[in-house]
């Protein structure tokens, strides 16, 4: 009986190996994908205190940067296709674990939080250094084929951290990606569509690469209930500055060349001319308005015409 069971187990084992290897021989091209994710205040909820020119953040929830969730989704689609492992990393305080859990709920395999007080005060240069150091550590531990980022974070809107990481790690930089067309069978190239102002560019690039994605790429999935519940108890791995071998002169405030001099609230928009058909100057004002519109319409038209 026992022998029979063992044989059965063995058989199962063999079958599953066969499936694995079949899967692999065709598709093992992307093994490890790293997604960079930032926890941001929900800027659509932020209000300004006009008296002190500061933001009212009370009650404003922190969320995972929406574009980064598009990147997580793209990683998960590749994971399903190629059996890759998806690691999500974020630089932030312990509260940022909440945003990482969201990626876990969607199906990411592991999450790492880069947390150290000395990271505070970082601009995009220091941030890209910190994230790049963590990715280097993951590379050393077994390679990274693809790094995915959202096109920008909604609190800073800089779109600079992605190119920063690519440059530091010598990854092929592909920004504003709206579609991943294909990954070559040899695992050496990736073909993507980039969404530019006036059209779509199709580019083939070497792997490993860093992609920043626009929201058109994939809509983030709605996690299944078991995954969601599991993620609520997930504890991300935490790495401090020392654990990513960070050079103290390149992180946080010290590693940041830019300096916020002042912060102020934008001037309030004010009402302008009111045109009342009954008024004396209506005709004159109306034709002035039409001229303004005409000018802009003409400028916009000329942009579309390729000379």
């Amino acid at each position: 009986m026992i022998f029979f069971l063992m044989a059965l187990l063995l058989h199962i084992d063999i079958v599953s190996t066969a499936i694995d290897s079949q899967y692999c021989s065709e598709k093992v091209t992307i093994v490890h994908i790293v997604v960079c994710l930032k926890q941001v205040p929900d800027t659509t909820e932020v209000k300004i205190d006009r008296k002190t020119n500061t933001l009212i953040r009370e009650g404003v929830p922190s969320i995972a940067n929406p574009f980064d969730l598009n990147a997580v989704e793209a990683a998960l689609v590749l994971k399903e296709k190629y059996g890759a492992t998806v690691t999500v990393i974020s630089m932030g305080p312990p509260q940022a674990k909440e945003a990482l859990r969201r990626a876990i709920a969607m199906g990411a395999d592991q999450a790492i939080l880069l947390s150290d007080r000395s990271f505070a005060g970082a601009d995009t240069l220091a941030t890209s250094y910190t994230l790049a150091q963590a990715i280097l550590k993951l590379q050393d531990a077994g390679g990274v084929d693809l790094v995915l980022c959202g096109k920008q974070a909604i609190d800073g809107d800089t779109a600079q951290v992605g190119p920063g990481i690519a440059t530091r790690l010598n990854l092929t930089q592909l920004t504003y990606v709206s579609k991943i067309e294909s990954v070559d069978a040899d695992g050496k190239h990736i073909t993507v569509e980039r969404k530019l102002e006036n059209g779509v560019e199709i580019v083939r690039g070497n792997l490993p690469a860093l992609l920043t994605v626009v929201k058109e790429i994939y809509k983030p999935r709605y996690a299944s209930l078991p995954c969601l519940i599991e993620s609520l108890a997930y504890e991300p791995v935490v790495w401090n500055a020392k654990q990513i071998s960070a050079d103290s002169s390149q992180i946080g405030l010290e590693g940041s060349p830019t300096w916020v001099e002042t912060i102020f609230s934008p001037p309030l928009r004010e009402g302008g001319v009111i045109l009342n058909p009954g008024d004396e100057n209506y005709d004159k004002e109306f034709s002035g308005l039409i001229d303004t519109v005409k000018k802009i319409v003409a400028e916009e038209r000329s942009k579309l015409v390729c000379s």
Partner: peptide, 22 residues
């Protein structure tokens, strides 16, 4: 623009200098 941001982010990193966006 998409081109300017793509390039400037890489250049500033290579030169290790400050870059202010947008």
């Amino acid at each position: 623009t998409t081109m300017g941001r793509d390039l400037a982010g890489a250049v500033a990193t290579k030169l290790r200098t400050g870059l202010t966006a947008d």
